[in-house]
Design a binder for these strands. Structure first.
Length: 645
RNA sequence: GCUGAUGUGGCUCAAUGGCAGAGCAGCUCACUCGUAAUGAGCAGGUUGUCGGUUCGAUUCCGAUCAUCAGCUCCA
């Protein structure tokens, strides 16, 4: 007999070898039906695992992260089984659960069009109805290899070949379908009550663009139809916030086939917002001891040869001229680093000059591959709140913290702070040619940065192979409305480029040393940040950022004179005001102003003209009634200056 | 760059191997109106671009450009 500690600290005795599913059944039929996976002594495991000794057991349902994972993973097996039934020649690759769903990669001649996906769904419904039991069993590595060689599943063979010798390999079998698989699964296909295949796309085998492109089917699954329905509705709602749609509707930006891909045109309202952000950033940076530089948009190839960009980044640059034919070749800058270094090199530096903080509102050009552009998030020309900070080793930690605090201040002001996560981006020693510097330099830089991050108690995950070619990064990540993650802000530690450029300072003892350099952005790229703001606020921006803050809505022509007086008054204090002087009904004018997400609509009629008031309508709270003009202005200015939402 | 889908007035969407249509937006006129759409009229298109097949192409075929979903890459 063994003692099993259940939820709430209840200890119960069971026969040795009992499984979590049996324990769930002993507790209740309802739980046995809804349980998806388990943890034993906080280790995730399958419901079929036999328990050999005293342990702590949690039974996980769909409400638990890992339960969800097991549920959706099982659905990916159902998908694979259905595909194999319909298209027996299909070769299977991998099929994991992911955020909000699952996918499975297939190699097949059949193109998975929408109609084919419908057929596959139909077959999946049959498999669910058949309520097939999933059986877990194991094989040795060599048996497993033979099994998949016989089954003519080359991708599975490759996966097993990569596993260490002597490893016991687990399988799950459901009816005629058997798949290689670690991790937990449901007991039977019948539990997967609601699912949907959402899309089919291409995906490289093992994420390697040199290898074959497979077909990836994405789907999602829930225990109840109502939950699926809710999820799909939420996706539809999210689409309405998509900056690429909303930003165009609100006339913040547009694109032109004649100008080209990844080159958005900022329309007056979008340009105004970027100007507001830029002024805010430059002022705040100045307050924090940053000095503005203004450096050229292009340079001779020589500069990039010193920095290493020519060797490591040339494909990503717009090169002007032909290296073979021309005496001099120029390139548009993809980064500001080497330009600001030339500012540092303007004269000899002493330790007294450090830390030296250079910022710049810097437009960059990157020749992104054609399939990678997306709205304002991924573009070929963008403007970044750039900065490079030269300091001594002793100053590094404090200065790094200062950069991080600035970034956090920006995020909090924008209201994005709660939405970000941190990634410590490290190099990949297996991919040596992507980086400059020695192993020792990388170990040192990453060691220092790791220590700083730990001291600052930042909760980060590690991203191997995500470093810049010259050093590790702290990336502040954010997800867009579709759940896709991008880097919003980055802070990097670099101890290599100073040496390459001969950047030195004279230390107290009279010796020359290379400074550490922190590369950082405070608010990120204005285009990308704007995109995230559009999605965050669904276009209803905080008052300080709203391109139009107030719309004046006179009821009839005779109110125009007063409306114009109010307009002048508001503009005199710097407010952004529009006057809707068309011959339209007030309801119509309000409707339009609301669709433009204007924060305050001011209705002006006979009463207002007589009393010198404004009938204030807030986009959030609706009709607020009459307010004296001066009071409205005073309140609005407070709201703008506190950057309150 | 790769896989797949899409491309029809400013926007949302119809239609067809034989004169391209609607709603919204726009313009004009009337209405001067109190918190999410007043009515009437007018105008707006080389069906992304280039080429091919055809008596005839917006429709079929090819190329190209752009957009979307994803992969790879990346701020």
């Amino acid at each position: 007999m063994i003692n099993v500690t259940l939820k709430g600290g209840v200890v119960r005795q069971f026969e040795e070898g009992i499984t979590p599913i049996e324990i769930a059944k002993s507790i209740g039929a309802g739980l046995a039906k809804s349980v998806c996976a388990a943890t034993v002594d906080n280790k995730e495991c399958d419901l079929r695992t036999s328990l050999k000794s005293d342990c702590e057991l949690s039974l996980l349902t769909f409400d638990d992260e890992y339960g969800k994972w097991a549920f959706r993973h099982t659905c990916s097996h159902i998908l694979a089984q259905a595909v194999k039934r319909l298209f027996p020649n299909t070769k299977l690759a991998i099929g994991p659960a992911i955020d909000n769903g699952f996918y499975y990669d297939f190699d097949t001649e059949t193109v998975f069009t929408a109609e084919v996906l419908e057929k596959i769904e139909e077959e999946m419904r049959k498999i669910v109805k058949e309520d097939i039991t999933l059986e877990r069993f194991t094989m040795s590595r060599s048996e497993a290899l033979d099994f998949f060689k016989n089954a003519d599943e080359p991708y599975k063979v490759e996966l097993i070949e990569d596993l260490p010798e002597g490893e016991e390999i687990s399988f799950y079998k459901q009816g005629e379908f058997t798949d290689l698989c670690a991790g937990a699964h449901l007991m039977s296909t019948g539990s997967v009550k609601a699912f949907k295949l959402t899309s089919a796309t291409g995906a490289y085998w093992r994420g390697d663009s040199k290898r074959k492109m497979l077909q990836r089917v994405y789907g999602t699954a829930f225990p109840k139809a109502s939950m699926l329905e809710e999820h799909l509705t939420a996706l539809e709602e999210a689409k309405k916030r998509d900056h690429n749609k909303l930003g165009r509707e609100l006339e913040l930006f547009t694109t032109s086939d004649l100008i080209g891909q990844g080159l958005p045109i900022m329309l007056p309202k979008g340009a105004r917002m970027i100007q507001l952000l830029q002024r805010f950033v430059e002022d705040e940076e100045q307050r924090r001891g940053w000095q503005l530089t203004k450096t050229p948009f292009m340079a001779k190839s020589d500069l990039y040869k010193v920095s290493g960009h020519w060797d490591h980044y040339k494909d990503g640059m717009f090169v002007l001229g032909d290296e073979e034919k021309d005496d001099e070749v120029f390139a548009l800058r993809p980064m500001t680093c080497p330009f600001q270094y030339q500012a540092y090199l303007n004269r000899s530096r002493s330790y007294r000059d450090l830390p030296l903080r250079y910022n710049e509102t810097s437009t960059l050009f990157r020749n992104e591959a054609s399939g990678e552009m997306h709205g304002l998030i991924r573009v070929r020309q963008f403007t970044i709140s750039e900065g490079h900070l030269m300091c001594t080793p002793e100053q590094l930690e404090d200065e790094f913290r200062g950069c991080l605090e600035l970034a956090i201040y920006m995020l909090k002001t924008l209201g994005l702070y709660e939405d970000v996560s941190y990634r410590f981006s490290q190099w990949d020693p297996k991919d040596r040619e992507k980086y400059i510097g020695t192993d020792e330099q990388w170990d040192e830089a990453q060691g220092i940065m790791g220590k700083i991050l730990d001291n600052l108690e930042i909760p980060y995950k590690i991203g191997i192979g995500e470093a810049a070619f010259y050093g590790p990064k702290l990336d502040i990540q954010i997800k867009n409305v579709h759940g896709k993650e991008d880097t919003l802000i980055t802070i990097q530690v670099d101890q290599m480029l100073a040496e390459k450029f001969g950047m030195e300072y004279v230390d107290k003892d009279g010796t020359k040393k290379n400074p550490y350099i922190i590369h950082r952005t405070s608010i990120g790229c204005y285009e990308r940040t704007l995109a995230l703001l559009i999605e965050k606020y669904a276009g209803a921006f905080p008052l300080w950022l709203a391109p139009v803050q107030v719309k004046l809505l006179p009821i009839a022509d005779r109110h125009l004179e007063f409306a114009n007086q109010v307009k002048e008054k508001l503009e005199a204090v710097g407010m952004r005001v529009e006057l809707d002087d068309r011959n339209e009904k007030i309801g119509y004018k309000i409707r339009e102003a609301r669709m433009q997400r204007v924060p305050y609509m001011l209705v002006i009629g006979d009463n207002e003209v007589a009393d010198g008031t404004l009938s204030v309508r807030s986009r959030k709270e609706g009709d607020l009634g009459a307010v004296a003009v001066d009071k409205f202005i005073a309140d609005a200015l407070v709201e703008i200056n506190t950057k309150a939402r």
